[in-house]
Design a protein around this nucleic acid. Structure first.
Length: 154
DNA sequence: GCCAACGTTGGC
DNA sequence: GCCAACGTTGGC
C-alpha cells in the first residue's frame, strides 16, 4: 500500500465536488506532467490512499482522503479536440497521458493547511515532497510515516 | 545536445 | 495580480 498527495484547485474541482459524484468516484484527468503521469501509470495501485489537496486557494492545504479504485489507463480528454486538455501528440494507439479513478473516503475533521504542514518541514515532515522548495508537482508520494503524522494532526 | 524563450503552477 | 520556480519547446 502506497500513499500519495493529489492537488486540485477547489474552484475547478473540490473535495465536495468529488463527494457529489456518482459513487463518489471520478477519473483524475487533465494531468499533463510526465512525473505525475508516471506516478499514476506506474506507481499507483488499487487501494492506495491519497490526500486530496486544495491548491491555489485560501488557505491551501489538505482537505481529505481519497482511494485509488482504478489503476492507470489512457486519459481520453487528450484525444478530444474540444477539451481544454487536448494534446494532438497523444493518440489512442499510443496514449501519452494517463489517469486513475479516485473515490472519496472522507474529509479531514479539519483541513490541514500548508502553513501548518510547513512547521514540521525540518522535523517530522522533513523530505515530504509537497514541502520541497518550489514543488509544483500535482501528484507526489507520501511516506507511511508522513501519512500517519499528518493524520495525527487532525 | 545546449540553452533561451516561453508557458504554467501555485503561494503570496 | 505578481512573480519565482521550473518543465517544455524549438532553433541552432
Amino acid at each position: 500500500m502506497n500513499y500519495w498527495l493529489m492537488k486540485s484547485e477547489p474552484e475547478t474541482f473540490s473535495i465536495d465536488d468529488l463527494e457529489a459524484c456518482p459513487k463518489k468516484t471520478t477519473h483524475w484527468d487533465g494531468v499533463r506532467n510526465y512525473q505525475a503521469r508516471n506516478f499514476m501509470r506506474d506507481g499507483m495501485r488499487r487501494g492506495d490512499l491519497a490526500f486530496f489537496y486544495h491548491s491555489n486557494c485560501e488557505p491551501p492545504g489538505i482537505a481529505g482522503v481519497v482511494k485509488i479504485v482504478k489503476t492507470g489507463y489512457p486519459d481520453h480528454t487528450a484525444f478530444d479536440v474540444h477539451d481544454q486538455h487536448y494534446d494532438p501528440q497523444s493518440d489512442p494507439a499510443k496514449p501519452r497521458w494517463y489517469m486513475v479513478d479516485v473515490q472519496f473516503q472522507r474529509k479531514l475533521k479539519r483541513p490541514i493547511s500548508l502553513e501548518e504542514l510547513r512547521k514540521y518541514s525540518n522535523g517530522a515532515l522533513e523530505g515530504l515532497a509537497l514541502l520541497q522548495r518550489g514543488n509544483r508537482l500535482s501528484i507526489t508520494a507520501v511516506s507511511a510515516t508522513h501519512w500517519k503524522f499528518i493524520l495525527a494532526l487532525e
